[in-house]
Design a protein around this nucleic acid. Structure first.
Lengths: 206, 206, 206, 206
DNA sequence: AATGAATGAGTGTTCATTCAT
DNA sequence: AATGAATGAACACTCATTCAT
């Protein structure tokens, strides 16, 4: 039993490692340009060996997506769950998103916002994750604006501006450059949250 | 000679058509997923015929990039050349960029901001075009802020936020939806230019 | 136009050649053991070249089946259509079946009675052809016995015995051996038709 | 020693089980389409475990062949050994062959008359078994005809017709259909032995 | 100019087999 | 004895590219 457990754990660890390595490579080179042989080589294996762990390239990619999505979403949901003031929560979300992208999960943006994949089901999975991700931010914005339901109107555009700004971050940020991650996190949180704060204020005044 | 010229013109037109078609397909499916046969089929040709016009897929892609870049950049530069107030110029640039992306050159963002291409030189070319594009906006911002040279500081971040917002636009905009292109252009121009306006005002006050 | 036709004809001929070669190889080695490279090599080509003519190994096999089936069935149907006495027709069918198997279409029996193929649709196609083939003989037997419809009873068994005997022929016949094809054809026609003749006679007597 | 023996027996039993299971699978799917993992799974093992009992897939197949052949041949030889009249013996052989195919060893025909195997030595082994099998029937026929040696002439053809009919039986017999195994056995014995009986009678008359 | 024919290089995937545990 | 891990060899198939016509 102990042996069984140990073997299972080792296997699970290997799978996790492989997924991490694969996620990185997929993020760097894209789906089609990343071969099984390459992924395997990064773990000192040969291509066909991966079939002991994943039944196809598609499945491996799917697991990368799901793994990354669940980790990131959980992390953001914890912030939402803290129950701070909506404004503060929104700022924290943005800040944390910056840390996620630049420090903790550098493959997040490539995998979910950049990659082009020729398989419909995979595209669907990616979009679903993106919607979940967006929903977290949207919910806070709705609380902030006091609009539980209905269309967001111009807040929708502001939200998409924020997502765009965040999705573009890894394209230009260079670690060791003039700006630190902390500075960017602060400025992003401030700048991207501000339109919503003003909208809320304008609503109250009326 | 006249015949020669006419032939040349016809050939040039065919090349231009091919480049347009190819640019659209590359933009839709990505570099690797777009085959010569496919591109040719869109012009009622067979794959190998393209070799009469382009020496390789790489070259064709390169020309797509260069063609698209030059058209878009020229168009933006005309706005800069009009000599309006910097604030107005910046707003015009943003507005026009929205029209470019959503109405006139829908392949612009995919080609320059989304595509993943496995050839180093092509990546370099794309980045070069992106830098040229960015420089147009940056120059206006510098005029607006009165800083001809030196680092842009936090204005750099604001600029990248604007680029990100613009690059993300085609991902969420749906023609025929709740928002018109004009509305988005207006809101983008307003929202994305505002931080710079405020920075300029703050500078003057001191 | 003439050129088009000539090209088409050449292509059609090449396809026909390829199908013949492939049918022979499939018949000799089976479906799985016959590779594209092998088939192509038999025509001085390399494996992938076959994809100019057939979209997959499956399709190539299907065409082999259909081609062989249609040729053989047509040939047998001509005999049926001659309108001889049922007994004579049956004997002719059996004789001709012997010539088909041993002289003209040596791949017929392997392809339709021996090959094991791991694709359901292909198995279905083979069985369908076999049923068509059997139906030709069955019809004549029914005429001979004067039973247009209903179960064949013990004639069914006699028919299957005949099919079995014929399907087994290529397993033991060796050209240049003690027996000529003509002798076998004669003896098969005589022996295999006899039970039906006797059944018919017995029916009449009653 | 007792322990050793018991272990040996258990091992021998396991090997026998594996051979039985493998024979069934080989018969159902063919040699190439039957994988080690599949065979092992049928005994709640994993593929590589089979290497404790068989040094290769080839060897396993070989043992299946030999095992099946020896069982069937022994059974038929018992009939021959009973010393009945040649005619009766021949009929018994045919009857029993029907029971073997349809009731007791359904893998016999697939393994020896249908399977296509890409290994020369295995093909040789199969053919050898087939010859042994045929020899049993041939010997009885020779006794029946009173020709101990020399060519069989037209009796050869009749024999091969019988073999063909028997080899084809499993292709069309469906248990639970209109015909019982017993009926088929009777009709086969009668029909297939008759030509020999008549030949013998003709010989005596002269 | 256009293309049918052909192919080399590469890719995802299967599978019998080996080996350490 | 059993197997998880690993792999080499093979295979169907894709695609950019060449070339003769």
């Amino acid at each position: 039993m102990g042996a069984q457990t140990r073997l299972d754990r080792k296997r699970a660890e290997k799978i996790a490692s492989l997924e991490r390595v694969a996620a990185r490579l997929f993020a760097e080179r894209g789906f089609e340009a990343t071969g099984f042989e390459e992924i395997a080589a990064a773990m000192d294996l040969r291509g066909p060996s991966l079939y002991h762990y994943f039944s196809s390239k598609e499945e491996l990619f799917l697991r990368c997506i799901r793994q990354s999505a669940s980790e990131v979403l959980e992390r953001l949901q914890k912030i939402t769950a803290a129950g701070d003031e909506p404004v503060e929560t929104l700022k924290h979300l943005i800040e944390d998103q910056v840390y996620i992208e630049l420090r903790d999960y550098p493959e997040f943006v490539p995998l979910f916002f950049k990659i082009q994949v020729p398989v419909e089901t995979l595209r669907g999975e990616i979009l679903a994750s993106r919607r979940e991700h967006a929903a977290i931010f949207e919910l806070v914005v709705r609380e902030l604006l006091g609009r539980r339901t209905g269309p967001l109107g111009s807040a929708r555009v502001q939200l998409e501006i924020a997502f765009g700004a965040l999705a573009y971050l890894p394209e230009w940020f260079r670690p060791g450059g003039a700006l630190t991650v902390e500075q960017i996190a602060a400025q992003f949180a401030e700048t991207l949250s501000r339109p919503f704060v003003e909208m809320a204020r304008a609503d109250q005044r009326i």
